[in-house]
Amino acid sequence: MRYLKLGSRNIDEFLGRISNYGDLYAPQKISEKFYDYRKVEDISQVEFNYNRTITPAKKYFIPPKHEMFEFDMETGEYTETMGDVKPFVLFGLHACSIVALRILDGVYLNEYPDKYYAARRKAGIIIGISCLPDEYCFCNLRRTDFVDIGFDLFLHELPDGYLIRVGSERGHEIVDENMDIFEEVSNDDIENFKKFEKKRHEMFKYEGSFDNLRYILELTENSPLWDEESEKCLGCGNCTMTCPTCRCYDVQDLPDIDGKHGKRIRFWDSCQFRSHGLVAGGHNFRETKKDRFINRYVCKNAYFYPLGTSYCVGCGNCTYFCPAGIDFLKNLIKIRDVVGEVAHGEQ
């Protein structure tokens, strides 16, 4: 891999340069405690040190609500309305967010190719940034705390700038075209990079592996924990909306009042909503709140085979943004202990 250094004095210049490649979006402080990705109008607003954003980066590839096409009910023809997606730069993604996008790729590019997703993904330049975990983070248990693929550039914090890993052809092009703002990596930089990585590892609250969780969950569907925890649930969908890998959507046809035309729209759905499992004849795969509650735990802990990781990347968003204070991680730890006798032999 190619390594470069970006000195502190060149950071603003770097942001200016990358915005030449397309509209720049980056984490910004949007309220007292929260951050979110926003279009950068003023580079001083770009946040380098943040823990999580209230909307995951998926919003740039699967918009929360978007029009797919317009249709004519008389001729039965339809017209695509998305048009060309202009190149854009997404700056400041943490490792878990980049893994999350790769999980979405697996579903939207490989499993069921989706042209809307593909066009946006192609247009997006991804620049990652290192981070230190807070008490909600457990990406280490998910093995998503470090990425080696899925970004164009990745910035690792140093005391006097950033060590940059170049992760794609486009990444090489960007650095080649801007070599005047980069430096060679020195021995001190390498030592500082290692120190940062060590510090990062030491800050995680939990150690171990969650690789057996899927099966433990399947074996403990009768645990009283699910009654207790789902009872607290609001069914509001905050957990799935803020989840970087939740990707369910709903599709709706909106006819025009003229009775001749219409448009088809697509928007974020959630397995926490009753209609998510509703099918013809009024049957529902997940009739109760408890069914819907367990569904998310099982779904998130299932394996995403192409990457060998779970669908959960351990970002902590679902806990941090739950208005009911339901702690996803604590519940997972608890459920492992509930079946301690069974699980012990496996550990």
């Binding site: 929260f34 909307t55 919003k59 929360p64 509001c236 909306m241 928007f267 959630s270 208005p323």
Partner: peptide, 11 residues
């Protein structure tokens, strides 16, 4: 809540 999150508001 669903629309609030889709809209990117702080909670």
């Amino acid at each position: 809540c669903a629309e609030c999150r889709r809209a990117g508001n702080p909670c």
